[in-house]
């Protein structure tokens, strides 16, 4: 019963997603290897919830997000998305995005949007704010009539910008304001799922909180679901319902935000959490310094990818890749020693 309900609520389910970028060398561009940017990622997002996606730089968070919205063509996997855009009467229907042709994919794109990291690069400097926010509507053939203008005005008000600014150019705005323009554009088609690719990491700390709260307010107002990609765990804690931790193209742990932060099951999560600053000056921090760098996704280590940096590593970790298993209800982890270790959260 509970299981059934859980399934009903699912908006997006990714199964076995892989994205390998070929490494080509030589005159004939022979493929000599692959960068396994995303290597067998499975996750799901429920309606109205926020899934945080965390990990160090280069662990495949952004690639995962871009594969889901099909900016990159995944190498393998399934992306099931509950869409209302394809059925004539608006009934929700689960479809595999990777099986859709270009035309139908474009229709489904109305229900997905992306917010980008860099507020300078994500807005075309030659276009006015109006043109930028109206572009998604233009792409979907809604023209440039008065309704579009009304929508743009409404969106600008929603994100806290003055509608009379819509004929200005992006360079006239501050970083935080530009990010609001990007958010307004993402909402232009009234999406159900918004992929936020590090939406606040390029902003000042003072602006970060404002922007995060705006995203939370919009989630309530529009019933949005977010995939929130970030490397800052305290930001993720603030906005997420559930969190997925990625390491070298794989999800190593998924759980509710409380569980994950208080009782992590994966040593990598523990190490990340130990880096979160505590607001208590008397707290004696016990920061776990990981040895070495993130593994090379073109040439990953044997067994568990994390074993060379793991302080709990055993011989088995070097030999066998751990299975991704549900150790506690709704708490998945890929670690041989999960459960027997007592790891520290925050």
């Amino acid at each position: 019963m509970a299981e059934q309900e859980r399934r009903d609520n699912i908006l997006l389910e990714v199964r076995g997603l892989k994205k390998y970028f070929p490494i080509q060398r030589g005159l004939l561009r022979r493929t000599v290897g692959y960068v396994r940017a995303v290597d067998d990622v499975s996750l799901y997002v429920r309606e109205g919830e926020t899934l945080g996606l965390v990990g160090e730089s280069g662990c495949g968070k952004t690639t995962t997000g871009r594969c889901i919205i099909r900016l990159y063509e995944p190498t393998a996997g399934q992306i099931h998305f509950k869409t209302t855009a394809l059925s004539p009467n608006g009934d929700p229907q689960m479809v595999d995005l990777l099986s859709l042709d270009k035309e139908r994919m474009k229709t489904v794109r109305r229900e997905m949007a992306m917010i980008f990291q860099d507020p300078i690069n994500s807005l075309n400097p030659r276009m006015t704010v109006f043109d930028i926010i109206a572009e998604p509507m233009e792409i979907h053939g809604m023209g440039r009539g008065p309704e579009v203008e009304e929508t743009v005005v409404r969106l600008l008000e929603h994100v806290g910008l003055r509608p009379e600014h819509m004929l200005r150019y992006p360079h006239e705005f501050s970083g935080g304001q530009r990010q609001r323009i990007g958010i307004a554009r993402a909402l232009a088609l009234n999406p159900r799922l918004v992929i936020c690719d590090e939406p606040v990491s390029a902003l000042d700390v003072s602006i970060q909180a404002q922007t995060l709260n705006l995203l939370l307010d919009l989630q309530k107002d529009f019933g949005l679901s977010y995939i929130f990609i970030a490397h800052d765990l305290s930001v993720v804690q603030h906005v997420s319902d559930r969190v997925a931790v990625m390491y070298v193209g794989k999800v190593v742990e998924v759980a509710d935000v409380e569980h994950l932060y208080s009782r992590p099951l994966h040593p990598y999560t523990e190490a990340l959490l130990s880096a979160v600053p505590k607001p208590d000056p008397l707290y004696k921090s016990e920061r776990i310094l990981m040895q070495g760098d993130v593994a090379d996704p073109a040439n990953p280590p044997s067994g568990c990818y994390f074993h060379p940096r793991c302080r709990y590593a055993q011989p088995i970790c070097e030999r066998e890749a751990p299975e991704f298993r549900e150790l506690e209800p709704d708490h998945w982890v890929a670690c041989h020693r999960a459960g027997e270790l007592h790891l520290k959260g925050v």
Binding site: Q117, N121, E135
Partner: peptide, 26 residues
């Protein structure tokens, strides 16, 4: 590779639109 081009693509913009609206004007 600019994010505004990716944004247009993420909304399903056609190649022609990306070329003539974003890339060539840029």
């Amino acid at each position: 590779e600019r994010e505004y081009v990716l944004a247009a693509l993420s909304f399903g913009a056609s190649d022609r639109r990306v070329l003539f609206r974003h890339l060539i004007p840029g």
